[in-house]
Design a protein around this nucleic acid. Structure first.
Length: 287
DNA sequence: AGAACGTCTCGGCCGC
DNA sequence: TGCGGCCGAGACGTTC
C-alpha cells in the first residue's frame, strides 16, 4: 500500500498521537509477520513497560523508538495499516476504524497504559515487524542498502544523477529500486514519469539531460504534494484514523487506463514493466 | 479471471 | 567447464 508519502502520513500521525504512551501488552495472531524476535512471548517480554519516544521514517519503513533503547520497525508492504484504537471513541460510536472496511485484518496490537491501542492490520499478510536495538535500526539488512531519501535537501540534482549513473534498466524500474532512491513505488513512479514526460520503458542510459532534469523536479514536486494530501488511496491505504488520503483525485496516470491524458487528451495506456502495471500517455511520453 | 500501493529468493542465461 | 552477475518469474495471503 504505502509509498513514501503514505508512510510519512502515518509517521506524522504517530508523532502527534502516541508519544509518551506506555506499552503494557502486545498481541499477535499471525506470528509470521514477526521477523524478530519470532515469538510473541519474547517480543512482549522485551518491550513491555517501554514508552514511545518518537516515530520516524526511512524509505517505506516506519520506525518507533522507545525508552528501552529498542525500536520497532514496521513495513506495510502492500496492504498494511497502522490504526489507532481508542475505546472512548468506540463508546460514542464515532470510531472511524469501526467503519473501515479493512479492520477485520488486525494481526498485531500494541496496548498502551491509557487503554488506547495501536493496531497493525494487513489483508495480504505481507507486512513485517521487527524489534531491534535502537542503534542497529539502520544496520538491518533491508535498511542498510537503501539509497538516499528523495526529499532530503541533500538529495540534489547532482546526487540524483550520480545515483542513476551506470544503471542499466528501464527508468520505471530504476525509480522503484530502493537502493537507487528510497521510497518511490508503483503509483508515484507512474505519476513522476507522466509529469516528466518520459516513457517508462526508456533506458536510463538513453535519458537526455532534459529528461533527467524533469524527472528530478517531478520527484521532489509530486512526493511533496502527495504528503500534503496525506497520500493516495486508490484501494487500501488508510491513515492511523482509518481515513483515506486525498492525492487520489490528483492522479494523472496511475490506474487511469483508457481515460484521457490531462495534458493532451490521448487515452492513457497500460503496459507491464517488471511485472508491475504501468500507466502512461503514449503521446506525451515518447520513448 | 486477473490484478493489487512490495520485496525477497531462486533459477536460467550470458560472458569472462 | 566454472563462477559471478544480472534479469525475470515466482512466491508470499487475500480481496474485489
Amino acid at each position: 500500500m504505502p509509498e513514501l508519502p503514505e508512510v510519512q502520513t502515518i509517521v506524522s500521525d504517530l508523532n502527534k498521537k502516541i508519544i509518551g504512551k506506555k506499552i503494557v501488552d502486545v498481541w499477535c495472531d499471525w506470528p509470521k509477520i514477526l521477523q524478530k524476535p519470532k515469538r510473541i512471548r519474547e517480543f512482549k517480554k522485551k518491550i513491555k513497560g517501554a514508552e514511545i519516544k518518537k516515530a520516524w521514517r526511512r524509505a517505506k519503513f516506519i520506525i518507533i523508538d522507545t525508552s528501552f533503547n529498542l525500536s520497532i520497525i514496521f513495513h506495510m508492504r502492500m496492504t498494511g495499516h497502522l490504526l489507532l484504537f481508542n475505546p472512548q471513541l468506540k463508546i460514542k460510536n464515532h470510531d472511524p476504524i469501526i467503519e473501515d472496511p479493512v479492520n477485520r485484518f488486525i494481526h498485531f496490537k500494541l496496548i498502551f497504559a491509557d487503554k488506547t491501542e495501536l493496531w497493525f492490520s494487513d489483508m495480504r499478510k505481507f507486512g513485517t515487524i521487527a524489534l531491534v536495538p535502537q542503534n542497529e535500526v539502520l544496520k538491518e539488512k533491508s535498511l542498510a542498502k537503501l539509497g538516499p531519501e528523495p526529499l532530503d535537501e541533500k538529495f540534489t540534482f547532482t546526487v540524483f544523477s550520480k545515483q542513476l549513473g551506470g544503471q542499466r534498466g528501464k527508468i520505471k524500474q530504476v525509480l522503484q529500486n530502493q537502493e537507487v532512491i528510497a521510497g518511490i513505488g508503483n503509483i508515484y513512479a507512474d505519476e513522476i514519469l507522466w509529469e516528466a514526460k518520459v516513457h517508462p520503458k526508456k533506458l536510463v542510459s538513453s535519458l537526455t539531460p532534459t529528461n533527467l532534469r524533469n524527472i528530478f523536479t517531478a520527484i521532489k514536486k509530486i512526493l511533496a504534494k502527495a504528503i500534503v494530501k496525506r497520500g493516495t488511496s486508490v484501494a487500501d491505504f488508510r491513515d492511523t484514523a482509518g481515513k483515506k488520503g486525498f492525492y487520489n483525485g490528483m492522479r494523472k496516470a496511475y490506474q487511469r487506463t483508457g481515460e484521457p491524458c490531462m495534458r493532451c487528451g490521448k487515452k492513457i495506456k497500460r503496459i507491464v514493466i517488471g511485472g508491475r502495471g504501468t500507466h502512461y500517455c503514449p503521446k506525451c511520453q515518447k520513448i
